[in-house]
Design a protein around this nucleic acid. Structure first.
Lengths: 337, 337
DNA sequence: CTGTTAGCGCTTTCAT
DNA sequence: ATGAAAGCGCTAACAG
């Protein structure tokens, strides 16, 4: 079922059929109707491969994310998929598990598919071979979540957000605030969040303390140890976590250590995954507009594509974050101070 | 950078280059080396659109799922994406929000992209216009999660699973077991799960009771009412939910009604989303191999594609489920009986 | 084992 | 406003 059948059916040339679809105004109304009718009758759908081959535009976007098992990225992908679909674009998602080798592999897979552009979240924008390759190939791209002065990014200001959170906790009366994260070296975002935490702690003349947890089992020994110590004076009254999944683990570890959240310990996450509000206690978090980050990335990229230029680092977008002060966060009770 | 450049560089014809890539054994070792070297030097990647146009095979799969905001489907997509990538296939995911209009729209988008096959989860396989269209178009497809005698499906036996769960609850001493679901008419899977529940309740001479909740706010009035009633004799001792997300809401509603889980009320979900094990209490659930369902669907579909035939309903796969008896489920305490 | 060549379905000059 | 025809990059006969 090709353009040829439609042309025959409508009694016109294939060029006219093509025009009727791609530049309707350049075709006489009567002809247009005839073509449309013929196409509908035959159930004709233009062949994208042929169109791509001819125009060198695929109307397809590559999407490279760390994992879909973290709801944050699932939400982001939902936003990307929605925005892309609205614009008539398809997406090809690939996941990397935070591994550079997989990032490069993803790029290779996508390069053959001649995607018009990519949206990606890399482990560390500064030292990313993937981004270097991308620049070299001069393919338009937008980074989601990453923040870097030399790349086009859509993100929130995690450093400021974290500093605000710590300030707010201090204001509530918290003094011993522990930060928990995965391996800092594995994520430039975690590093930024830590900077915000450390700066705010220093500003308040409190001691910063970081606990890096291996991302393996459910109730990490280290955390239990740190929380379970008999010495109430040294136990933190609040845990700020570099992401929501980690915060969940912390809440569970706290419960296992016999601590109540938030009575004995406040736990705050980062990301604002939708699920957090469904829990009990609901998860306090610095919420990012995850779907929004996805949508805006697509919108920006498509806008650039339309004008034939690549997104520029200087036009990077910082979206607003929000402190979600939910049930897992509150002022420390007297007994814990 | 096309096959022509490589041919020139290697001093052979374009046909030889093509063969060197697609049937290396049919080319002299020396020639092969020359071609490979030339390709590497030029950074050549075969153009998929051209190949697709010529061969009518895109090495791309369409994936149609209800939503990515439910972790179950995010896990499924992760499995699909992994298996597809391993086989050198790309996927184009589309979401439908359980709406038939969007299912049809998805099909339209995919038809132009000439995907080799599709994997989909539809709201109701029995009355699905989408599946009808798919059959008419003779495109190979596999349903994930849906179960239907006339379609090729990869799923677990939700009816049996639910019956087993209810039997186990009865064995633990539960008598007043309430089932909670979304609108039954919206999902053939929920219907199957309900059948299993009803049958098992009847077998135990207990009264089946279904609460259909609108999928809108976080702590549905109806549920609170049903749980909060002063009359302890009529309050259920266990809630079986048609999915994990709903179970989460139930746990939250229970807490708001002043009930402890599992001391006062057991809550069991269905799906086995990974996040459930991270909560406190951890979520008991009938767990399905979500990533596995995705992977197996891809494997089956690709296998059929290789042999040039479409998956047949008769070869449908039922994967094993498992009762995850975690913290949110236990025998009723004396005071609640 | 290798080369020549005809299209896959579409868009886009260039004529008319 | 419409048609004729070239060609996007590749594969698969076919010929040698």
């Amino acid at each position: 079922m090709s353009i040829i059948n439609v042309a025959r059916q409508a009694g016109v040339s294939i060029a006219t059929v093509s025009r009727a679809f791609n530049a309707p105004e350049s075709v006489a109304p009567a002809t247009r109707t005839a073509v449309t009718a013929a196409a509908a009758e035959l159930g004709y759908e233009p062949n994208l491969s042929a169109r791509t081959l001819r125009t060198q535009r695929s109307r397809t976007l590559g999407v490279v994310l760390p994992t879909l098992l973290n709801p944050v990225f699932a939400e982001t992908l939902a936003g990307i998929a929605g925005a892309a679909a609205d614009a008539g674009y398809s997406i090809i998602p690939l996941t990397t598990d935070y591994r550079e080798a997989q990032e490069l592999q993803a790029l290779r897979l996508l390069s053959g598919r001649s995607v018009d552009g990519l949206i990606l979240t890399v482990a560390d924008a500064e030292r990313s071979a993937t981004l270097a390759a991308l620049k070299r190939a001069r393919r338009p791209y937008v980074l989601a979540y990453n923040r870097h002065p030399r790349h086009p990014c859509v993100s929130v200001d995690g450093e400021t957000a974290m500093a605000e959170l710590v300030a707010r906790l201090q204001q509530l009366g918290h003094r011993r605030i522990l930060m928990v994260s995965g391996h800092l070296s594995a994520s430039d975002r975690a590093q930024q969040r830590y900077r915000g935490y450390a700066a705010a702690m220093q500003a308040a003349h409190s001691a910063a303390e970081l606990l890096e947890l291996p991302f393996i089992d459910n109730a990490p020994e280290q955390l239990l140890q740190r929380l379970g110590g008999a010495d109430r004076q040294h136990r933190p009254t609040a845990l700020v976590c570099s992401n929501d999944l980690l915060a969940l683990r912390c809440m569970r570890a706290a419960a296992l250590a016999g601590l109540r959240v938030p009575e004995d310990l406040s736990v705050i996450g980062f990301d604002g995954m939708a699920l957090g509000t469904e829990l009990r206690p609901s998860l306090a978090s610095i919420s990012q507009p995850n779907e929004g980050i996805g949508r805006r990335s697509v919108a920006w990229l498509l806008d650039c594509l339309d004008r034939g230029k690549a997104p520029r680092a200087a036009d990077s977008l910082t979206l607003p974050h929000q402190l979600r002060e939910l049930e897992s966060m509150r002022a420390p009770s007297c007994s814990t101070l």
